[in-house]
């Protein structure tokens, strides 16, 4: 399901210029179509997050750049970790047991 700029600004009650500035900052990266910009659910969830960070948590725009960059790195790392976990779970049990042993803290 996709959403247009008009719908976003109405539902999330943000100004159009505000949304445009988020897009200019590349905080939000909607798809460009013949009908204009469209937002998918990932974009929407991110818009809700940015809105909360700015309005509720009082993160200013400069800090927001940093916060989003750190969050994006965190999620990238977690994606990799997830892929790694899936790869490990597909290994034979003796190998997984070896990995478990290696992950156990010293003396634990």
């Amino acid at each position: 399901m996709t959403t247009t700029v008009e719908q976003i600004t109405r539902v999330y009650r943000i100004e159009r210029v505000e949304l445009e500035s988020w897009i200019a900052h590349r905080w939000i990266r909607p798809a460009e179509t013949a009908q204009g910009l469209v937002f998918d659910e990932v974009d929407e969830a991110r818009i809700a997050l940015i809105h909360e960070l700015r309005e509720d948590l009082k993160v200013d725009d400069e800090a927001l750049d940093l916060v989003l960059s750190l969050l994006d790195q965190l999620y990238a790392t977690r994606r990799v970790l997830r892929t790694l976990t899936q790869a490990v779970s597909g290994l034979p049990e003796p190998v997984r047991a070896q990995i478990r042993d290696r992950l156990r803290p010293e003396g634990g």
Binding site: A45, Y75, A76
Partner: peptide, 24 residues
């Protein structure tokens, strides 16, 4: 039902927002 950003960020959909300078 609210779906938080984290519900997407770790899935393939979140890759779009991966830090481009870090080429993840």
């Amino acid at each position: 039902q609210r779906r938080f950003y984290r519900d997407f960020a770790e899935a393939a959909g979140g890759e779009r927002y991966a830090d481009p300078s870090a080429s993840f």
